[in-house]
Structures are given as C-alpha cells and as structure tokens.
Amino acid sequence: MASSSLSLRFSFLVALSLALHCAFGAIVCEDLPQDVCAFAISSAGKRCVLEKFVLGDGSTEFQCRTSEVVVEKMTEWIETDECVRLCGVDRNSVGISSDSLMEPQFTAKLCSAECYGNCPNIVDLYFNLAAGEGVFLPELCEIQRTNPRRGMAELLSSGVVAPAPESDASPLAAAPASI
C-alpha cells in the first residue's frame, strides 16, 4: 500500500513538473520580444526569426516568428548578449544569410576562440549557412586564422553555378536573321 501511494505521488510530481514546464518554461518564438528573437530556438527545436512587416500606414513593425529550420541538438535557447557581441552578430537582423561570411571582420569574430568555442548556437547556424554554400566552416576558420585573404578567395570560388542547358545549335544560330 505504501509503495503504491509513493508511486502515485511520484507520478503526480512528474505530471505537475511537465505541466509547469509547458505552461511557464516553453519558448514560443511568437511570444518573444524583438530584442531576443534572433538567435533563439523554440521549445520545439525550431529557429526563431525576426520578420519586418510594413503596415497600411507605411510604418514598419517587427515580429518574431517560428521558422521551419529545425536545430538537431538544441532546444529552448536564447542566445546570450555576450555571444552576440563575441561573434559579431546583430539581434536586429531581419533574415540571416551567408553573405556575412564574405566579410573578413565578421569571419574573424565568428572563428575566434571566444565565439567558436563558447557559442554553439551561433556557430551551428553559420556552419549550416556555410555548408549551403559548399564551404566547411571548420576549414574556413582554420584558413581564416592562418591566411584570411586565402579564406575569402576560397569562399568566393566555392559557389556552384548550374551549367547552361545543352543544345545542338547555339541560340544565335536558331534565331531568325534580321536585316
């Protein structure tokens, strides 16, 4: 009898803990203020993004939204102000692209031991952005530490351009001649 009472109490405490976590501890992107939205990860493991909307009167409004990007190893994460500063990112960024990897000052901050070793969320985000460009971030960081100009050249030359469609005749030969 005592063990069933103890088991019932334990089950109640676990259920209460889960209910409290869901009610108070969950990170929902749409509930986050603008100043912590960028570089946050929801309880569902999706990245939060800051979006800009133009209202009917011409004024702009910023809202935090949930993206479809799932972060495999992190949930419920709001990036610290220290990491934002160390990595050289901006919380007011509307959308994030790989373009910043082309800026030597940004890459130097991202690849610094302080950022790369202590800010896994930001590093993961830019790791994936770099991979989308065909660049392996750890290699880019190593090159950046040893020869920053070479790192930028490799990034610039890494873009893959789809080949033009092949045909038997050139487009100029197929076009009617005009006199």
Rank of each mutant, 00 (worst) to 15 (best):
9 R>D: 03
140 L>V: 05
175 A>G: 11
137 L>Y: 00
85 R>V: 10
37 C>K: 13
106 F>L: 07
65 R>M: 02
86 L>C: 06
83 C>V: 04
3 S>A: 12
9 R>G: 10
140 L>E: 03
16 L>Q: 09
32 L>A: 06
95 G>Q: 01
23 A>L: 09
164 A>W: 02
120 P>Q: 12
126 Y>R: 06
128 N>D: 11
52 K>T: 15
90 D>N: 14
15 A>T: 13
126 Y>A: 08
51 E>G: 02
103 E>C: 07
176 P>Q: 15
122 I>K: 02
22 C>K: 13
32 L>V: 06
65 R>I: 00
137 L>A: 04
34 Q>E: 15
50 L>H: 10
89 V>D: 03
23 A>N: 06
21 H>L: 01
17 S>Y: 13
133 E>C: 02
47 R>E: 11
166 E>M: 13
162 A>P: 10
179 I>P: 15
114 E>F: 02
51 E>D: 12
62 F>E: 00
117 G>T: 08
127 F>I: 00
176 P>L: 15
94 V>C: 04
138 P>M: 08
82 E>A: 10
67 S>L: 03
131 A>F: 06
44 A>R: 13
124 D>R: 05
10 F>K: 06
97 S>G: 08
173 A>M: 11
92 N>P: 00
24 F>H: 13
155 L>T: 05
19 A>P: 07
152 M>Q: 15
162 A>I: 11
130 A>L: 01
74 M>P: 04
87 C>P: 00
47 R>D: 01
170 S>G: 08
170 S>V: 01
148 P>H: 09
109 K>G: 02
155 L>W: 04
15 A>G: 09
1 M>T: 14
145 R>H: 13
145 R>M: 03
90 D>H: 14
174 A>F: 12
98 S>F: 08
99 D>Q: 04
59 S>L: 09
155 L>N: 04
9 R>S: 14
36 V>K: 15
161 V>R: 04
99 D>K: 03
151 G>M: 03
105 Q>K: 09
127 F>T: 14
95 G>S: 10
93 S>R: 11
103 E>R: 11
81 D>N: 06
154 E>C: 12
34 Q>R: 15
155 L>M: 07
31 D>E: 14
